[in-house]
Design a protein around this nucleic acid. Structure first.
Lengths: 157, 157
DNA sequence: GATTATATCGTAACGATTACTATTTAAGTT
DNA sequence: AACTTAAATAGTAATCGTTACGATATAATC
């Protein structure tokens, strides 16, 4: 099933309406799946296809998408909330690599934490429902300031 | 060596002064090592022993401590920055368990990620300098709303 | 002791987010 | 189809954490 009708069903299941505004916002997120957009960035992009849309609606819609576990609200330390589309199973968040030279943010979509979660359960009596794993560091190719240009676009942490 | 003289040396090494205000703030952090205090909380606590201290000084000092890698600035999703004392080796941040029933925040001080960091290096050509690992979930003892009282104190995420 | 740099204080300014009121749109009812 | 009720949007004002700024105080240097 394609993403948008999948999401549409999630809305319906909770008696939420997939209004044109909400659909426009979801499409922006799908079109920029690789990025971690801020509210302001979503707002700018969505205004291209839906000029009349208000900022408050973006905030409300992203909050709703969060509640439905379609996106994850994250904070990478740059003062704005960023939103990350969850996978189709909506189970866990992916892991992140954050380059401190160029600011690039890459995702690891596998779940590397299965074993550690079992260990947490065993040793701490703690049942894990979600996790967050970020690595900060540098790409080998970035050590010689290879990709500083990107930094302006998405400064992170 | 005790913590405060250790920190004192770190200040001196970078030609920063350990003023009475800064020392008062550091002591609050040491006295509440287990917690993850917000700026406002540090401000309230430090005012008990140093009533004249200003809020801006708290912000500046915590920023400085961050720069010296004595504390780590974190964001658990409740809208305020929180600060966590790093270990004595100042190498890596600890992992966190965040209970979604009671809001409790526990630390795992071991580093469970050595292997995964090697894997990141190998598979992604990414050299890790720091990491962040949070688990969200529930304690077995919390499943029956065992400790809701604490929630008011430190709502997280 | 004069000079210069560093740190603090209090508050104003800023910026992201939330709250609020009026208006619009959709859904349900007779 | 008109009426009623509920849900969603728009625009903006208010809130709140954080940062910036000018004035003052403290410490270091000569």
């Amino acid at each position: 099933m394609d993403q948008i009708s999948n999401i549409s069903q999630l809305f319906a299941a909770q008696k939420y309406k997939l209004t044109p505004q909400r659909e426009a916002i979801v499409n922006i997120l799908l079109d920029n799946e690789k990025d971690h957009l801020s509210v302001e960035e979503v707002y700018m992009l969505v205004k291209l296809s839906y000029p009349h849309l208000g900022l408050a609606t973006v905030y409300r819609t992203l909050e709703l998408l969060c509640e439905l576990h379609i996106v994850e609200k994250m904070n990478f330390g740059d003062g704005v909330a960023r939103y990350d589309l969850r996978g189709n199973d909506h189970s866990h968040m992916h892991h992140h690599l954050i380059c401190s030279v160029c600011g690039r943010l890459e995702e690891i979509k596998d779940d590397w934490l299965v074993e550690l979660e079992e260990r947490v359960e065993r040793e701490y009596g703690f049942n894990v429902t979600d996790h967050r794993l970020d690595f900060k560091g540098t790409y080998g190719t970035c050590k010689r300031t290879g990709c500083k240009k990107e930094k302006a676009n998405k400064a992170v942490s």
